[in-house]
Design a protein around this nucleic acid. Sequence first.
DNA 1: CACAAGGTTCAGTCTTCACTGAAACCTGTC
DNA 2: GACAGGTTTCAGTGAAGACTGAACCTTGTG
Lengths: 149, 149
Amino acid sequence: MERLAKYCADQDGVPLIAGRVLGWLMICDPPEQSAQQIATAIGASRASLSTNLRLLSSVGFVRVLTKPASRTVYYRVDDDAWEKVVQRQIASLASLGRILQDGTPLAGSSPDRGGRIAVANDVFRWMQQIFDNAPPLPSTTRAAEESRR
Amino acid sequence: MERLAKYCADQDGVPLIAGRVLGWLMICDPPEQSAQQIATAIGASRASLSTNLRLLSSVGFVRVLTKPASRTVYYRVDDDAWEKVVQRQIASLASLGRILQDGTPLAGSSPDRGGRIAVANDVFRWMQQIFDNAPPLPSTTRAAEESRR
DNA sequence: CACAAGGTTCAGTCTTCACTGAAACCTGTC
DNA sequence: GACAGGTTTCAGTGAAGACTGAACCTTGTG
């Protein structure tokens, strides 16, 4: 499992160890762990853990929990972490689409030159449309159920 | 424009110059260019061009055209290049979802431990569903129109 | 106050990789 | 067969960045 999360880590731009941390935090018991515990669990230095945990929490994939009357800080995967991953990947694609769109004038409108960009713009419009018509995200649904109780 | 495509290049894992090549090939006139032309256009060494063009064509973003009675090789962006970009990004997300799914048993089924993964699986099911219900890709539509003529 | 547990910062090592110039490799042309 | 245009391969350089051990800061506890 950790090895698989690591695979996805170097497929993305995430540092190797951050991937392992995520992998471990997904299956560990209890769900919240101290930096120390994580360090020994995945066999990395505390220094690296410090860096990677800050990274992960700054991008909102893990949440920081402090228990009262204890100087230990606990970490836990955010429930919406993977949803964020998906959302950001999509957002990144959308911004790529916007870049292409902004560049459209550079090619002019003659069919030979503008054709390439026109096709590209079609693709991103297609994508945009899909998500506009998409059902609500699981997290939204979950929140709604939560409040209905 | 080239600068923007470059931004998206280092956002992804693509070498800087490959991004510039794509940017240039999107707006150049004529649409097909020799390695030489591209090299001077974006100011990179021919060696680098050779490497990056091979990379780009191996992943199917540019197509190689050889004109008869000439040893020059011409390159052109594939019409479906950006569609491939989108598709692969999605595919990558889907494979991430599969990894998470495969790891589900590792957390067991107690609500405290399995809950995290269950939520994650929901997200990827949601994504899967969106694309199952999606309209056909622009390229498919385009091909259909082509053949209808 | 001394101590120790938890965490962070710093300097250094090591790996990876994009890029380049120069040499080598075709392949048509004279 | 020599030659020249076009491209590829190769060794080398430089930069980016992940990871670590060691020193340092902080904060409850005896």
